[in-house]
Design a protein around this nucleic acid. Structure first.
Lengths: 127, 127
DNA sequence: TCCTAAATAGTAATGATTACTATTTAAGTA
DNA sequence: TACTTAAATAGTAATCATTACTATTTAGGA
């Protein structure tokens, strides 16, 4: 594997962001450092970083969002699709189920966020 | 809401299948009953049935798969993408987190299925 | 039977992601 | 330091799941 500047920029963006960026969000930030970086390159690096376990993915509304590797979960608001980090949640995990090797849990809490519970915020999506 | 035959066929397909069909899989089966049913109609009904809580969704590789409402979880093999039902798993659930109302947990176990652990099955996806 | 809003069929459009290809480059080797 | 080469990139085209659109049909109430 080659240690390219594109790869380093993509990884740094994820590790330094407190947002949960999708590929295009990473691309927009990456262009600040490398003005002609290709969107395909961003996708490829996000994919390989995910496979290596260097970053993690959370799926929201059919779109992959990326996050650094810090043990935590996510809450996703069904109305505005906002992603909120969830810490201090203990969930017991199987290592194996019926002969199938389990090495990962994808856990997403879903519901209505505090803001959207106020009735005048109905239906406003902030992606 | 109108009680159309298309809606009934879609719901029956989910409730009578032990597979985890995606929209196109439902469409193919639905055409046996209604030969000119539209793919868009299948999507619309799957979406509304999901919103009403009549069926549930599991996301695999960026594609929605549908399942009946029976309390259980899923294991997804990272290699072949097979979905395996997981019963008898107790996971404690919050009702609320920092003022956010939690009414649903999306939980997917991921790993390598029994079959794919045999080395001669590497890389074969069965979608 | 009539009426009407809702659902449908068929098709086009969208949007995230992947594939393709000529060019560039990281990194090992002489 | 220059050479070599496989891997990565930029730019673009293609794919594919899903949604949007519109004329037509239909469920269900009056």
């Amino acid at each position: 594997m080659k240690n390219t500047k594109q790869r380093k920029v993509v990884l740094d963006i994820i590790n330094n962001s407190d947002k949960h960026l999708d590929a295009f969000g990473v691309y927009k930030l990456a262009r600040i450092s490398i003005s002609n970086i290709s969107l395909g390159t961003v996708y490829r690096n996000l994919g390989s970083l995910e496979n290596e376990g260097a970053i993690q993915v959370i799926m929201v509304d059919g779109v992959k969002h990326y996050d650094k590797i810090i043990p935590h979960y996510h809450f996703v608001c069904k109305k505005c699709l906002k992603i909120i980090d969830v810490f201090d949640l203990e969930i017991p995990r199987l290592k194996e189920y019926n002969g199938n090797l389990v090495d990962d849990y994808e856990i997403v809490l879903k519901g209505i966020c505090e803001n959207c519970q106020k009735e005048d915020n109905y239906g406003i999506k902030r992606k």
